Computed example of a mutant assay.
Amino acid sequence: MFNAVVMNKDEDSGLATASVEQIELDQLPEGNVTVAVEYSTVNYKDGLCLSPKGGGLVRKYPHIPGIDFAGTVEASEDDRYKPGDKVVLTGWRVGEAFWGGYSQKARVNADWLVPLPTGLDSRQAMAVGTAGLTAMLSVMALEDHGMKPGQGPVLVTGAAGGVGSVATAILANLGYEVAGVTGRPETEAYLRDLGATQIVARDELNETVKRPLESETWAGCIDAVGGEMLARVLGQMIYGASVAAVGLAGGAGLPATVIPFLLRGVNLLGIDSVMQPYDNRLRAWERLAADLPMEKLEAMVNPAVLSDLPQLGADILKGQVKGRVVVDVNA
C-alpha cells in the first residue's frame, strides 16, 4: 500500500473533501507506465481540483488530484520507457479527468510523459511544473513573434505567482528588462531578487480606460491575470509587440477593443500547456534547463508534504501562495 491525497464526495451535500489515505496498487487506473512519484507541486488548477466542488474540472470520485509529477519508472509496457528512467508529467488532464500526482505511485499513458531533461532533478522539475513550463512556452512564443532584448521593458502580470516568478527569472537571465506587476507590496524584494527592474502596482493597471490606446510602453507581456488588466495592457504595447495570455485570475472576460490589433499590429497569443505537442513540450523543458538559473528557482521554492495540500489548494485560489510549492510525496 502507499499514500495518496484522495478526494471523496459526500452524496448528501454534493461536496468533496481531501485527505491522505492508503491505497493499493491495483486501485490505480489503466495505463501502460507505472511511476514511483517523488515530487509534485501546486498550481492554480490544483486548487480548483482540491476545492469542495472540484472547480468544475473533477467529475468522478473518488479522485486523486495533482496535475504535475516527477519520478522514476517502475514498470512500462511501452518501448520508450524502461524501469529506472526519470520522467516528468504535466498536463493532459491528469489530476482532473485522470488520477494525478498527489500520490506515491501513478499509472499513466506513456504519451503523456517526457524524459527528465539533462540538468534538472525531479525536485527541480516540480519547482518548474506546469507553471514554469507555461512561462517558458510564453517566452518562446514571444520570441517566435520577434521579441528581443533591448526593445523595451517586458511586463509580467501576477509576477509573484508561479508562472510570473519563473517568467521573471527566465526573462531577466536572457537579458530582458522586466517589469513585474503585483498587488502585494511585500513581494517587491522577492521580485527584484528574481531579476525584475521595475515594480508596477496592480492598481495602476487594474481598470479599463475609455481610450483604446495609451503611450507605447511594453515590448512584450506575459499575462496571468486576464480581464480588465489584459484589456488595459493591450493598449500600452509598442507597435508590433505581443502579449502571451496564460491565465484568468482576474476574470475570463476581455473588455477591450480591436484598435490595438488594427492600429498597432499587436498580437494576442494564447498559451496552452495542457495539450502541448510532445516536440514543443520537449523543446520547452530543454530551454528551461538551459535558461532558468537554478539559484533563482530555488529561491522560489516552498516545501510541502501531502498533508499540506488541502490548505495549500485553498490558499492558491486566494492568491496567497508566493513562488512555487514543491511537494515531497514520500515525506
Rank of each mutant, 00 (worst) to 15 (best):
N43I: 07
P29K: 13
A299T: 01
A135D: 07
A314V: 13
G162K: 06
S13P: 02
S40Y: 10
L288D: 03
Y239E: 13
G132H: 04
P83D: 14
A106M: 01
R59W: 07
A244W: 05
P212D: 14
V325E: 00
Q104D: 01
E24M: 15
S273T: 00
A219L: 13
T34W: 08
R80F: 15
I199Y: 12
P260I: 06
L254C: 06
L116D: 06
S13E: 02
A241S: 13
T34C: 12
G175T: 02
L282I: 10
L28T: 13
N206G: 15
P117I: 08
W112V: 01
T197R: 14
H63T: 04
Y176L: 09
Q236V: 11
A219N: 10
V88P: 09
T197N: 04
T72C: 15
A125V: 03
A16K: 00
H63W: 15
N3Q: 12
N280Y: 07
Q104H: 03
A106S: 06
Q124C: 11
Y239A: 11
K53I: 08
G54Q: 01
T182I: 04
P117H: 06
V87D: 08
L15T: 09
D272I: 03
K322C: 12
A141N: 00
V108Q: 07
E295D: 15
A189N: 10
G132D: 04
L28D: 05
D85E: 10
L89R: 11
V128L: 14
A252F: 13
V329P: 03
V225L: 04
R202Y: 08
L254Q: 07
P153K: 08
A167R: 07
L57R: 01
A189T: 11
K53R: 09
G253E: 15
P255Q: 07
A201P: 14
L113M: 04
A290K: 14
L248V: 13
G247Y: 00
E21H: 13
